[in-house]
């Protein structure tokens, strides 16, 4: 099965998988998403969380999905913060979900 349809993480696709593929990089790894996916969808189809909570050990995976709770922040490799639930993937996007403290 192609990676974009990979079903290993938190989210599952139910249909609409016949879309152009979009290639991104996540924590240095090459990841395939589909056009129209949010960053959150791309990340949670393959994993269970998006970031580390700043004030504790727990990991976070977003909550409201409508751009209100701000719990799904990730970064581009240049440091630009992005809200994963409302930002659509773009070809070549390079994201970081793990900081130095997670190494």
């Amino acid at each position: 099965m192609p990676q974009a349809a990979n079903q290993q993480g938190q989210f599952r696709r139910i249909d609409s998988i016949d879309r152009p593929r979009v290639l991104c990089t996540v924590d240095g790894e090459s990841v395939e998403a589909l056009e129209g996916d949010t960053i959150m969808t791309m990340l949670l189809l393959r994993g269970h969380d998006l970031r580390r909570f700043e004030f504790g050990d727990e990991r976070r995976a977003g909550f409201c999905l409508i751009g209100v709770c701000q719990d799904c922040g990730v970064r581009q490799t240049d440091g630009t913060p992005l809200r994963a639930c409302t930002t659509l993937v773009e070809p070549g996007m390079a994201l970081v979900t793990r900081g130095a403290e997670d190494a």
């Binding site: 599952r12 949010t38 969808t41 269970h48 727990e58 976070r60 409201c64 999905l65």
Partner: peptide, 25 residues
Amino acid sequence: WTLPGIYTLGGAQVALKYQACVVGE
């Protein structure tokens, strides 16, 4: 309640409507 995998009802619905995804099986 802050564990990964826990979403609002609206959020779970948006995953379906906007992304053709479910937040879990």
